[in-house]
Structure formats: structure tokens, C-alpha cells
């Protein structure tokens, strides 16, 4: 047997297995949305006819327009703010030299190791004293300065040609204008990749919104889905239908930005 062929076959087999493992949960989710709860428990893996029944139950149980709107506001506003704040920070960290720059940056990275649960109580006290509990402001603000995204932008900025900045300076642009008219367009792949990461994180954010959003009409879809799973007799069909809906926005954003995402991840600057 041809060893090259054999190796190739092995690689394909492994990749197929990996693909199956990644794709099956999605398949299961979509199939589940079309089956009745009892069939799902029985482990039925073929499409069923309960899609409309599940949809009807879902919309009857959940105030979907309101809940999805809440999620959308938090995710979109949160993503926009995070990108602005964190990319500015990343740009600043790379562009401006200072004696304490590296120490400050190291400190930031160190902060990454503090689990969110440890900050929750003091954060809650802060927002409670600021009378912001149960507002979207409280849900969004703590995520806006994302250390990971600052780090990501700083790394990407390393590839930003300093000649461009110098040229812009000679043309008379100030630092804000350079950032706005030169840096941002050049780094669009980085922004695209960051958008996907941040949007997903915001859309799926669970713990903090759970604590700080208190009334039912302010909750996000992630919180509502979690509550549906814990019923004594969960309706899995309805639940999976809701999960499909909740997955759609991230999916759409990903496909829209997919090409740029790959570029961004590779650190390409055009």
C-alpha cells in the first residue's frame, strides 16, 4: 500500500471524526427543534414534525421580541463600546512609549487571572450604590474594557507599519485623525475578528447579566434559556427551538465577517 495514500486516508479519517464531533451538537440542536420532548429523550436523531408545535410553545412561554431586543441592545452597544475603548487602548499601548508601559501591561494581563466570580460582589455593591442595578448600563459597562481585546489589538498593532503613521503626521494629521482615518481602515480585519469575538461573548454573557438584571422584562435570551432547562419537566423541543433562534445572530455575524475573521486571526494588514 502506498504510504502517502495511507497517511492521507488517516488524516481524512481523523479530520472527519473531528468534523463530526464539532458538527453533531448543531445537528442535534436543529433536529431536536423539530421533535417532541419525549422523542428527544428517547434519543431520536431524525427530523420530526413538531417544529411548529415547539415554535408555538416557545412564543407562548417566552416574550421573544422583548427578550431578543434586550440581548441585541446589550450585544450591539456592548460590542461597539468594547471595540472603541479596547482598540484605543491597544493602539496606545503599542504606539506610545513610556517607562511604565510594559509594567502596566503586565499588570493588566495579570488581572486576567482573577475569576469574574471573585469580582461579582464588589461590582454589585458598586452598581447598587450607583443605582444602576437592573439597567442595561450595568450589564454592559464591566465588559467594555476587555483586557483580552486590548491585548489582541496591541499584538495586531505591532504589524501596523509605522511608516504610515509617520507619513500621516507629515501630512498634518493629529493622533485622533491618524487613529480614525489611517489606523481603523487598515486594521479592519482585526476589527472584524474582534467584532465576532466580542459579540459572541456579549450575546452569550451569563453570570453578570444574571446577577444585575433583575426583572423578567430586562432579561436576555441566554438567561431565559437557562431558566427553561431547569423546569421539573423541561420541554426539550421548545428549548432547542429557542436555542436555534438564540444561535442565529452569532451565526449570521460570523458568516458575514468570516473572510475578514480569518485574515484578522492571521494578523494580516493590507
Amino acid at each position: 500500500m502506498n504510504p502517502a495514500l495511507l497517511r492521507r486516508g488517516l488524516v481524512y479519517a481523523l479530520l472527519s471524526l473531528a468534523a463530526f464531533i464539532s458538527v453533531f451538537p448543531f445537528y442535534w440542536m436543529i433536529i431536536g427543534a423539530t421533535n417532541a420532548s419525549a422523542d428527544i429523550i428517547r434519543g431520536k436523531t431524525t427530523p420530526g414534525g413538531a417544529l411548529f408545535a415547539n415554535a408555538a410553545t416557545f412564543f407562548a412561554t417566552v416574550d421573544a421580541p422583548r427578550i431578543f431586543m434586550n440581548s441585541a441592545i446589550i450585544a450591539v452597544v456592548g460590542t461597539a463600546l468594547t471595540l472603541v475603548v479596547s482598540s484605543l487602548a491597544g493602539y496606545g499601548f503599542e504606539m506610545f512609549r513610556s517607562r511604565i508601559r510594559e509594567k502596566l501591561f503586565a499588570l493588566l494581563l495579570l488581572l486576567l487571572s482573577i475569576p469574574f466570580a471573585a469580582m461579582m460582589v464588589p461590582l454589585f455593591v458598586m452598581f447598587s450604590q450607583a443605582k444602576l442595578v437592573n439597567t442595561f448600563v450595568a450589564a454592559i459597562l464591566p465588559t467594555v474594557a476587555s483586557i483580552f481585546i486590548i491585548f489582541y489589538f496591541r499584538q495586531a498593532t505591532k504589524a501596523f507599519p509605522s511608516e504610515l503613521r509617520d507619513a500621516a503626521k507629515i501630512d498634518g494629521l493629529n493622533e485622533w485623525q491618524i487613529f480614525l482615518y489611517v489606523y481603523m481602515p487598515v486594521m479592519r480585519s482585526t476589527y472584524a475578528a474582534a467584532t465576532i469575538i466580542v459579540f459572541m461573548a456579549n450575546w452569550n454573557n451569563y453570570l453578570w447579566p444574571l446577577i444585575v438584571l433583575q426583572t423578567a422584562d430586562n432579561k436576555t435570551i441566554t438567561l431565559i434559556l437557562s431558566a427553561l432547562t431547569s423546569a421539573y419537566t423541561p420541554d426539550y423541543g421548545m428549548l432547542l427551538f429557542g436555542t436555534v433562534l438564540a444561535t442565529l445572530p452569532t451565526l449570521v455575524i460570523f458568516f458575514l465577517l468570516q473572510r475578514r475573521f480569518v485574515e484578522g486571526m492571521l494578523g494580516a494588514v493590507k
Binding site: K219, I224, S226, A227
Partner: peptide, 15 residues
């Protein structure tokens, strides 16, 4: 209000 799971209620109450 039934829009939180039991675990969620515990987390909120405790915090």
C-alpha cells in the same frame, strides 16, 4: 417571576 432557574436564584440571592 419564574424566569430564573433554581441555581440562578441561589446565585442572585447569595450575591
Amino acid at each position: 417571576d419564574d424566569t430564573a432557574s433554581q441555581d440562578d436564584i441561589r446565585a442572585k440571592l447569595q450575591t
